[in-house]
Design a protein around this nucleic acid. Structure first.
Lengths: 106, 106
DNA sequence: GATACCAGTATCCAAAAGGATACTACACGC
DNA sequence: GCGTGTAGTATCCTTTTGGATACTGGTATC
């Protein structure tokens, strides 16, 4: 194979590209993923804090979205054994790869 | 966004950013929008050609997606008064703004 | 006149996404 | 033991999305 840049339109290369793009899209799509990422971009937050930042999100959905973001390595979940246990969610370093994409979209 | 931490977070600016991002996401999301754009990136195609390129897409869905892409100024629809009328779909110049985003995702 | 191609539309249906509401389980203060 | 706060889960429901199947109306071909 030749260079992977630009318009090397072998069908395998194309299919791979589409798969990669679809993966990225999958992570960003949905009503809440981006707002969550934005909310966390100001620093780590706990579950209840996020719920308050994103008014109107129900705990069930917040929970689901956070799990997915965690599985995709965009956020970390840390449990602290404080008085009432607190759980902190934070963006990972890997999530910074989204920044340039998000900036382009703006 | 993360680049201007702390100070620059007027809520209006943030909301605008999110709106812009959501619009972009809206255009790209869904199962077929990207494949259609990729298919058209090799040159204009007619309805039936697209249907064959994107095996398994039903005409109803292809029709709907094309309408949305047209409304968002990413494709043009041109009707030719040939023997059996042919309709050609092509990417617009504006759609090139997606290229850098798509490349980033890859 | 039957068949086939083109560009769709119409009707009905299944799966996925999103959400409202209520609940659990634990700890603290009073 | 009652109310408050934490981090969720469970159940049910609505909306959105995607799709299967069949059909229309036009032209051309056999």
């Amino acid at each position: 194979m030749r260079s992977h840049q630009g318009k090397d339109h072998t069908s395998e290369a194309c299919l791979q590209s589409i798969a990669a793009i679809r993966d990225t899209l999958y992570v960003l799509s949905g009503k809440w993923k981006l707002p969550i990422i934005v909310a966390l971009s100001n620093g780590p937050q706990r579950f209840k804090d996020l719920q308050r930042s994103l008014e109107e999100i129900t705990p069930k959905i917040l929970s689901k979205e956070l799990k997915e973001l965690e599985m995709n390595d965009f956020v970390t979940r840390t449990v602290y054994a404080t008085s009432p246990v607190t759980v902190e969610y934070a963006l990972t370093k890997y999530s910074e790869t989204l920044d340039s994409i998000i900036e382009k979209m703006r």
